[in-house]
C-alpha cells in the first residue's frame, strides 16, 4: 500500500512539473493544481498510512490515524482553492488585456530559449 501512495505522489508531481513548464497559462494552472494534490497527499502521508482508524474518538478504541497532518492539510486544501482562484483571475485578466495567454515575457523570450 505504501508503494501505491508513494508512486501516486510521484506521478502527480511529475505531471504537475511537466504541465507547470508549459507555455500557456491554462496548463500551467492545472500543473500547479496537480502539484497541490501531490503536496497535500505528501503532507498527509507524513502521518503514516492507517486504514480503518479515523481520528474520531470512540470508547474502547485506541487505534487512530495521526490527526495533526489531517488538520494541516484540511486548511491547505481550502487555501489552495483561494490561491487557484487568484491565479486564474490574474491569468484571465492578462489574457483579456493582451489577447495572449503566454506565460513568458514576449520581448525577453525572443532573446532566450523560451519560444
Amino acid at each position: 500500500m505504501e508503494l501505491l501512495v508513494a508512486s501516486a505522489i510521484g506521478i502527480l508531481t511529475a505531471g504537475g512539473i511537466y504541465l507547470m513548464l508549459r507555455l500557456r497559462t491554462f496548463p500551467v494552472i492545472l500543473g500547479i493544481s496537480l502539484l497541490t494534490y501531490a503536496v497535500n497527499v505528501f503532507l498527509f502521508a507524513s502521518g503514516r498510512l492507517s486504514i480503518g482508524g479515523p481520528p474520531i474518538l470512540r470508547d474502547g478504541v485506541d487505534f487512530y490515524a495521526d490527526p495533526l497532518p489531517q488538520a494541516l492539510v484540511l486548511t491547505a486544501i481550502v487555501i489552495s482553492f483561494g490561491m487557484t482562484a487568484v491565479v486564474v483571475m490574474i491569468a484571465l485578466g492578462a489574457y483579456l488585456g493582451a489577447d495572449d495567454d503566454r506565460v513568458d515575457d514576449p520581448v525577453d523570450a525572443s532573446a532566450g530559449d523560451a519560444t
Binding site: 511529475a14 504537475g16 502521508a45
Partner: peptide
C-alpha cells in the same frame, strides 16, 4: 524542449516518490 521538461518532471516525480516511500517505511 519537451524532452528536457519531461526529464525534469520525471526526476522530480522520482524524487518525490523516493522521499515519500522512504518515510512511509
Amino acid at each position: 524542449r519537451r524532452t528536457r521538461d519531461a526529464a525534469i518532471a520525471l526526476a522530480g516525480g522520482l524524487a518525490a516518490m523516493g522521499m515519500a516511500w522512504h518515510f512511509l517505511m
